[in-house]
């Protein structure tokens, strides 16, 4: 795998993750929030839950998915990092 392939794979990963990022916050929390409010999750209206709780859990998961995916990608290309460069 060349460093160009690495960058392309990274960009693809980024677009997928940022799409999810946009959907769970701006999508479910704002644009479709009122529509989702007709469903409920326990005592929460679903749109309200996304706006005040769900999007934040989603953000945390997204970052760790990226951390893990990049770990494997870097293994594949065979990069070993050095400290304090």
């Amino acid at each position: 795998m060349s460093s160009q392939d690495y960058w392309k794979a990274n960009l693809k990963l980024l677009s997928v993750l940022l799409f999810v990022w946009f959907i769970i916050s701006f999508g479910f929390g704002i644009i479709f929030s009122e529509f989702l409010d007709q469903f409920s999750l326990g005592g929460f209206k679903l749109g309200f839950w996304f706006a005040q709780q769900g999007s934040i859990y989603g953000f945390v998961i997204l970052i760790f998915v990226y951390v893990i995916a990049m770990h494997f990608l870097e293994k594949k290309i065979g990069i070993k990092e050095e400290e304090n460069e």
Partner: peptide, 19 residues
């Protein structure tokens, strides 16, 4: 519910930072 702008706004930026 309007308060969600601060909840999402002050957390979602970390995704941008990390990515």
């Amino acid at each position: 519910k309007d308060g969600a702008v601060y909840l999402m706004g002050w957390t979602g930026g970390y995704v941008l930072l990390a990515l």
